[in-house]
């Protein structure tokens, strides 16, 4: 900075200015190099602490014109029900949410009736059990956090309703995590009851590897490979976190299309109104 002022105040001391300027540039370069080099080290430390960064997978619903793959949501729900639901809740989902998304109304009603929920009190003041209805939330595996921790050796299986929104790069993270189990590298020891997974912050997760080829029987006959199940359940969870996704993108496309028409009109209107001002000619009349 000093170079600006010196340059101004005293033009004759250009040499001083130049050397100062060179010094300042060296300083800036050195600082940049220092920050750049440290950044590498920090990123490595960061991946150990916060988990390996997942790859970017081409989700079919990523594009601005893309909706969810609803067959995948249906399969994903089956994976959730048969594998995840033993420990994880999706407390924000109701049976009704599945209607028209992954199942027909009759299918969901039938699914709901398999569960008993406590309702009441009735006319005598007693609580009673009844089959679940469309308006009921999906059942939770544990009554509360304490119960969940007790059943899982102190670890708390998080609710999955918002999991893809509540983690950095959520969909890719869930997918990578589910497929990321491997033997710990040399020098890394994992405590009894924990499993090595480089995508999990800290590298040791209490959830064992849950997906294995053929672990689920899909009702549409898709071969249930490990990665197929991971993909489907991630799509299901992405939908659970953002059920408005399809409607949102459709509305966005329509709205931005209309706005761009309005924008063209507005630009035309502006140019029309400004034309007289822009085409003015200023004459300096020196005679009068």
């Amino acid at each position: 900075m000093s170079s600006f002022f010196l340059n101004l105040v005293n033009q004759h001391k250009r040499q001083v200015t130049d050397s100062l300027y060179r010094l300042a540039s060296c300083g800036v370069l050195a600082t940049t190099a220092w920050v750049g080099l440290s950044e590498d080290r920090l990123v490595a430390a960061d991946e150990a602490e916060h988990g390996l960064h997942s790859a970017d997978y081409p989700w079919p619903h990523n594009g601005i014109f893309s909706s969810y793959d609803h067959a995948s949501i249906r399969r994903g729900h089956q994976v959730y029900q048969q594998v995840c639901a033993a420990c994880h809740s999706v407390a924000l989902l109701h049976y009704r949410d599945l209607v028209g998304v992954a199942y027909t109304e009759d299918e969901v009603k039938e699914m709901a009736e398999e569960n008993e929920v406590v309702d009441g009190p009735d006319d005598t003041g007693e609580m009673f059990d009844r089959p679940a209805k469309l308006s009921d939330p999906l059942p939770r595996p544990y009554p509360n956090e304490e119960g969940a921790r007790f059943a899982n050796g102190g670890a708390y299986p998080p609710d999955l309703s918002l999991i893809t929104k509540a983690r950095h790069d959520g969909q890719n993270y869930v997918f990578s995590l589910l497929l990321g189990y491997r033997d710990p590298p040399a020098g890394v020891t994992v405590r009894e009851g924990l499993y090595y997974n480089p995508y999990f912050p800290g590298g040791a997760i209490a959830m064992p590897k849950m997906l294995a080829d053929g672990g689920v029987e899909y009702d549409d006959g898709t071969p249930a490979t490990e990665s197929q199940m991971a993909k489907d359940v991630t799509t299901f969870l992405a939908w659970a976190a953002e059920p408005e996704h399809d409607e949102r993108k459709l509305m966005g496309v329509k709205w931005i299309f209309v706005l761009s028409l309005v924008l063209m009109q507005a630009v035309y209107y502006k140019r029309l109104r400004f034309a007289p001002l822009k085409s003015r000619k200023i004459i300096v009349d020196v005679v009068n």
Binding site: L259, V262, L263, A266, V267, Y269, K270, R273, F274, L277
Partner: peptide, 11 residues
């Protein structure tokens, strides 16, 4: 004038 110009900015 300002209105038509701002309109472009708003949209």
């Amino acid at each position: 004038y300002c209105f038509v110009k701002d309109l472009v900015a708003w949209v």
